[in-house]
């Protein structure tokens, strides 16, 4: 008799535990977009490295295309166009593969890619990025070219910290690293491309691989 009561209590306890697990998962699922794939980071890192390498060679071949006028650095339109095209290619490829791996992971988890949480994450990522983008255009127009690479790192870091509230919390630490790296880079003008390659290339790859092993590898 006593045994039966104990058994019933055990069952009840299991139910309560299941209730709590369910509540926790619902709160998490409804407020964070957790389908972001680590592989997206790895691919973005590789494209950023490839982009940095091509930018390095473009700059090397175009050294006569940079001159000073009234103490302001001038760039030939060709050089600007080449660098712009490389940057756009990196951005497009990163976004494309980021989207691909994220929808794949979402499907596996049975979540939707386009929902309230992914929208919140994107909006919160976009706000600092938008401000940073405009700031970079202003730097460019004022001829402060050396500060552009550090600025992109700083604002990207801020964007990740801001967006981390709506996705995997780990992304916050990548944000801190990018931000610190950008701030350091402001003291080493002329090394922008190297800092940029390290921040957008190496850090993304390291972060992506660690996220992949933490969240996706086992499943």
């Amino acid at each position: 008799m006593q045994f039966k009561v104990l058994l019933a209590m055990d069952q009840k306890e299991k139910d309560y535990l299941q209730d709590l697990t369910e509540i926790r998962s619902m709160m998490e699922k409804s407020s964070r977009f957790i389908s972001l794939s680590g592989l997206a980071g790895v691919f973005a890192g590789f494209f950023a490295l490839a982009g940095s390498i091509s930018a390095y060679y473009i700059l090397k071949n175009f050294y006569i295309a940079i001159w000073y006028e009234n103490d302001i650095i001038q760039l030939s339109k060709d050089l600007v166009l080449h660098l712009f095209l490389v940057a756009m290619a990196v951005l497009f490829l990163s976004l494309f593969f980021g989207y691909y791996f994220t929808t794949k992971k979402a499907k596996k988890l049975g979540h939707k890619t386009w929902n309230k949480t992914s929208q919140l994450m994107l909006i919160n990522l976009a706000i600092p990025l938008f401000a940073g983008g405009i700031f970079c255009v202003s730097l460019f127009l004022h001829g402060n070219l050396g500060l552009i690479a550090p600025t992109t790192l700083i604002f990207y870091g801020l964007a990740l910290v801001n967006g981390s509230k709506f996705t995997l919390n780990d992304i916050k630490y990548l944000g801190y690293c990018e931000m610190i790296l950008g701030l350091i880079a402001t003291f080493f003008i002329g090394w922008g491309l190297w800092f940029w390659a390290f921040g957008f290339g190496i850090l993304h790859i390291v972060y992506g691989i660690s996220m992949y092993y933490k969240y996706e590898h086992k499943q």
């Binding site: 209730d19 369910e22 509540i23 619902m26 709160m27 699922k29 409804s30 939707k112 309230k116």
Partner: peptide, 26 residues
């Protein structure tokens, strides 16, 4: 009920939620 627990959990962490999002989550 499990559904009620789910509804309340979602509402605890979101300012407000629309029917379709709620349906998708639950």
């Amino acid at each position: 009920s499990r559904i009620r627990l789910g509804i309340m959990s979602v509402l605890m962490v979101n300012e407000s939620i629309d029917f379709l999002s709620l349906k998708e989550m639950l």
